[in-house]
């Protein structure tokens, strides 16, 4: 499978996430679009790890080149889980103060 196909798929998913962040006003949906972008990047990291692993296997049959990328994906998932727990707590707190999850209410932070 050519690497370009995976790059195009991940770019499409990432751009859909960007469009969601730009066009939606519900803070929870914006947050979900950020998760979508994180997942697109994860998939691209795994695809590149397999690409470099394939080239390293030609030289050395026991090579583990590319395993770093999969460890990175694991750590990205860890950080995303921590981020979601704090972010959703912030959204719940914002809903308690303003009775809305509209991100335009957040411009009150500047006063």
């Amino acid at each position: 499978m050519p690497i370009q196909y995976y790059i195009y798929l991940c770019l499409a998913l990432f751009s859909i996430g960007v469009i969601g962040v730009l066009t939606r006003r519900n803070a929870i949906v914006v947050f979900m679009c950020i998760e979508l972008m994180l997942n697109a990047v994860n998939l691209l990291l795994v695809a590149f790890s397999k690409m470099f692993h394939g080239y390293a296997l030609v030289q050395n049959a026991t090579s583990t080149t590319g395993i770093d990328a999969q460890i990175f994906v694991f750590f990205i998932m860890v950080v995303a889980a921590a981020e979601v727990s704090v972010g959703l707590a912030i959204i719940v707190m914002m809903y308690r103060n303003t009775h809305s999850v509209d991100i335009n209410f957040l411009n009150r932070l500047k006063n």
Partner: peptide
């Protein structure tokens, strides 16, 4: 190209 089903990483 990338390796699909081979590789143990």
């Amino acid at each position: 190209t990338l390796l699909m089903k081979d590789g143990v990483i």
